[in-house]
Amino acid sequence: MDVREIVIAGVGGQGTVFAARILAHAALIAGHHVAQSASYGAEARGTPAWAGVVISSNPIVFPYPQHCDAVLALAAPGYRLWEDRLAPGAVVLAEEALGLPGIGVPAARLAQELGAPQAANLVLLGALLGYTGWLARDVAAEAVAALSPERFRAGNLAALEAGWRYGRSIA
């Protein structure tokens, strides 16, 4: 894989880092090199937060996203930090309710319907992978299963799957 730079942006408490860790872990399982970074010091709810993932089949030189190939937007404050750092043809998947530019995904609603309201982040991640095909569905599921706490595992897997289907449907 060529270098892919992906940012998951939102506000503190939305699980941007968790989604990034899942993505990074999935990339590792798929045999890629990967670097995952995050904004620190913005853990409080409401403040902008982001996590970045750089994936490549070669060792990664600079480990931070610079020109994003994809941004997943869970909330506007985090997205604003990255909107002027998009690569040409970048994929922006945003929570539909935010009305941001890019492709709207009803992440919160889908997560809610699955009884996993905490997992809107994974719906968006699933949608990205379904839409782009950058990583296979089963490695993503493996990563979710490996990193989710027991009580959230089933809900998280369902959210990823729902997102993946949604992503496929709009691809």
Binding site: A24, H33, A35, Q36, S37, A38, Y40, I60, P63
Partner: peptide, 10 residues
């Protein structure tokens, strides 16, 4: 530094 300390990599 904070960057390497908090970076997660393979």
């Amino acid at each position: 530094d904070e960057a390497v300390g908090h970076l997660r990599e393979d």
